[in-house]
Computed example of a mutant assay.
Amino acid sequence: MPWNPDNYNQFKEIRFKPFYDLAELIVGDTILHAVDLCCGTGEQTAILSEKLAEADFLGIDSSAEMLSGSHQLETERLNLDKVQSKNSLMSQGPGILFLAMLPYNGWKTIGIFSLN
């Protein structure tokens, strides 16, 4: 069953709360690249790209339906796309930040992965 962005956005307020909690934990000027794994509609990735103004962002998702309206959010530093290979993600270089909010225990598990 494909994802439906309209159904997904019915719970936007609930989903954004842990996002803002996570965003408060991210500090520093050394983040050069950020990859948002399972970015959904890309809205949260766009918000975070404004906070980390020096970083280039890549939001990826496996659902073309979820990404269907996301390209209006893209900027010079923010690209949203369908899933890429692990090798293309790793080629981003040092100073990369991986973000993932995992659907476990009511969307309370949040992961931040950094490669330096």
Rank of each mutant, 00 (worst) to 15 (best):
Y8R: 04
N9D: 15
Q10W: 02
K12R: 15
K17G: 06
P18M: 11
Y20D: 15
D21Y: 00
D21W: 02
L22V: 03
A23F: 05
E24D: 10
L25T: 14
L25F: 03
L25C: 12
G28V: 06
D29E: 13
D29R: 08
I31R: 00
A34E: 11
A34K: 01
A34S: 15
A34C: 15
V35R: 02
L37D: 08
C38H: 05
C38L: 11
C39T: 09
C39I: 10
G40V: 00
G40L: 08
T45E: 15
T45S: 09
L48W: 01
E50G: 05
K51T: 09
K51Q: 10
K51H: 10
A53M: 10
D56F: 15
D56C: 07
D56P: 01
D56L: 06
F57P: 00
L58W: 00
G59E: 05
I60G: 03
I60T: 09
I60K: 01
M66T: 07
G69C: 11
S70T: 04
Q72P: 10
Q72V: 15
L73V: 13
L73P: 02
E74Y: 00
T75D: 14
T75F: 13
R77K: 14
N79Y: 01
N79K: 09
L80I: 03
D81L: 04
K82N: 15
V83Y: 07
K86Q: 12
N87R: 09
N87S: 07
L89F: 03
M90W: 07
M90K: 14
Q92V: 06
G93W: 04
P94N: 10
P94K: 08
G95D: 13
I96M: 09
I96P: 00
L97H: 04
F98L: 12
F98M: 11
